[in-house]
Simulated assay, not measured.
Amino acid sequence: MSEVRTVTDRDDAPRGKAARAPSLWLTVLSLIAFVVLIALGIWQIERRAWKLALIDRVEQRVHAAAQPIPAPVSWPAVSAANDEYRHVNVTGRFLHDRETLVQAVTEEGPGYWVLTPLQRSDGTQVLINRGFVPSERRDASARRDGNPDGRVEITGLLRITEPKGGFLRNNVPQHNRWYSRDVAAIAAARGLHDVAPFFVDADAGSQSAGGPIGGLTVVRFPNNHLIYALTWFALALMLAGRLFVTFGGGLFRRTRFVHEPAGGPDAAARRTGSDAGTIVEQA
């Protein structure tokens, strides 16, 4: 009579050395990382839905018929979510002697936005971004013919103030260096009062001959959230695969059987190595 014992590929490990199990902390961190990656992917899907809704809302505002700017009583409630990029119109008289040049880079090249206060009949003032001028025309005397003196009607897009400055560059009012359209800071530097907390980007139809180039507002929102989501999910899938190989691979390892008659010439053999199979022991 013989006793038959089967061995699997695990028995290939050298004698006297137990297989090392993964560290508990490594396992916990891997599981946490998997959960975080899935959460990031879901968050990017939600961000994509929000961005698509934003783009649709802005498109509707930009192409809607122009409406008067919000009344002064509602100015404190004006916000980016509810009002930015609304198609608006406003009438008044330009205060050209208080214009402000803000550095800009546009499709026309580097230069400046020309922000000029518009004095309205009710005494309030609105900053108008009349458009772009290249560096060689930054001096107001070089474009005097393009500055209308009388009452004008401006049509354009309502924009929210840009406080403090541009990317890595702060406004320096005392040196008349401006990198963003900060309404409050410009109003203080130019001695303006009762100024709307927003400005208006004039469209191309509002520009005058010889004046700044209007209608250069860029309405574009990057929407790469689907790519980000797929990236996070792919990383989570790769991590899950690694965890499966580490902890679940043994379920699918092949077991090989070799039957040898008791008392045969190899009955007492103890085979080791990559082709190790059944070890048959004498009863």
Score class of each variant (00 low, 15 high):
S2N: 08
V7H: 12
P14Q: 06
P14W: 04
G16R: 11
A21D: 06
L29M: 13
L31F: 13
A33F: 10
A39I: 03
I42F: 11
R48T: 03
R48H: 10
A53T: 12
L54E: 15
I55T: 14
R57I: 09
R57K: 15
V58D: 09
R61K: 08
A66Y: 09
P70K: 02
P70I: 04
A80R: 11
Y85K: 05
R86Q: 12
R86F: 03
N89F: 14
V90M: 05
G92E: 02
R93S: 14
F94D: 00
L95R: 10
L95E: 10
H96M: 04
H96L: 04
E99Y: 01
T100S: 08
L101D: 00
V102A: 03
V102N: 04
Q103N: 07
A104K: 02
A104R: 02
T106E: 05
E107P: 00
E108D: 15
T116C: 10
L118I: 04
N129F: 07
G131K: 00
P134N: 04
S135E: 14
E136L: 09
R144D: 15
N147T: 07
P148E: 02
L157M: 10
L158I: 08
R159V: 01
R159T: 01
I160W: 05
T161A: 12
T161P: 02
T161E: 14
P163V: 14
F167W: 06
L168P: 00
N170E: 07
I186G: 01
A188R: 08
A188S: 09
R190P: 01
V195E: 00
F198C: 00
D203W: 11
D203T: 13
A209C: 01
G214A: 07
V218C: 03
V219M: 15
V219Y: 14
F221E: 13
P222F: 03
N224I: 02
N224G: 07
Y228R: 03
T231P: 00
T231I: 10
W232G: 02
A236H: 04
A240M: 14
G241E: 09
V245S: 13
T246Y: 10
F247H: 12
G248N: 11
L251A: 10
F252S: 07
R253L: 06
P261H: 12
P261N: 12
A262G: 15
G264Y: 01
A267G: 15
S274L: 09
S274Y: 11
D275P: 01
E281I: 15
